[in-house]
Design a protein around this nucleic acid. Structure first.
Ligand code: FES
Ligand code: FES
Lengths: 144, 144
DNA sequence: TTTATTTAGGATAAATTTGTCCGAAATAAG
DNA sequence: CTTATTTCGGACAAATTTATCCTAAATAAA
């Protein structure tokens, strides 16, 4: 469904959000540990999320990653997925046709768009805030 | 969403079904042309679909692929996807946790399972027959 | 200013998926 | 029986994704 990079990116962002809600910056190393992801690969993903403006990064001692508190509830899961995996998952044809178009539909088009839109809406309606809160109060988990 | 192999496999199966409904066997070469897929790669996929019992294959002159007519409406999209991509898409965690379990859920679990189940139900409810019919009467297309 | 710490970024490498090649096996037809 | 045709199956290759390594740049603190 999502790429590995996206899975790591989502988990990392949620973890950063939890820490940010407690006014704490968090290092790459800590993130990778908590998220159970390869450190260097996670670094790349965080780098790109920073460039996308989803998270903030700071170099040097006391440096690390954080998210401006006021933005945590405006950031949606959709934004993270879009930043990492692009929009093929939201607009692409389920059977890989170059263009998904209802006027020249593939055999699964009509049924597939329902599912695809369902996913899109879910991602658009899910805020980083609610995901971070669930993790913070111990209702959900990042490792297993 | 689906692997390339699965996309090709679905399109190929639908095409074989259309031909089978007209009592015709169809060769690998023709399938690959109609589906716009690499010939040798398509061969591997068809081979595995034959092993899974979803399609029938016959060697030699006048050989090719076909699907027993009576089975066309009992085969569901779910069967094809399951045969090629396995069941991770139906049961796997959206964030890649080793085990998706409501008792130890990841942050997106509750929202993700709704979408995932939605997809599963759609695939289970979609018969090869209806997909093949749509293609046969020119309502849908395999290339673009 | 020096040092230690942390992210940035480029080069590589490993793993997986996608795709190719070719000879073997089956089989229909002359 | 021989030949032509078609799928089978294994080995190999290319492309993409995932992952690692190392140096540079920034920066906080001594
Ligand atoms: S054309 Fe295939 S999903 Fe729309
Ligand atoms: S635990 Fe992640 S989707 Fe169920």
């Amino acid at each position: 469904m999502f790429s590995k990079a996206c899975e790591y990116g989502i988990k990392a962002t949620i973890y950063i959000a939890v820490k940010s809600m407690h006014k704490e910056r968090v290092s790459l190393k800590e993130i990778a540990e908590e998220v159970n992801s390869p450190v260097a690969f996670t670094a790349k993903i965080l780098q790109s999320l920073a460039k996308s403006g989803i998270i903030d990064s700071h170099k040097g001692p006391t440096g690390g990653f954080q998210i401006e508190e006021s933005r945590i509830d405006t950031i949606k899961l959709h934004d993270i997925v879009h930043a990492i995996d692009g929009d093929n998952i939201f607009n692409g044809c389920g059977l890989g046709l170059k263009q998904c178009d209802a006027r020249q539909p593939c055999p699964v088009h009509h049924k597939f768009v329902v599912v695809r839109d369902n996913l899109k809406i879910m991602l658009q309606n899910t805020s980083l805030y609610e995901l971070a809160t669930g993790l913070d109060i111990g209702l959900t988990h990042l490792k297993r």
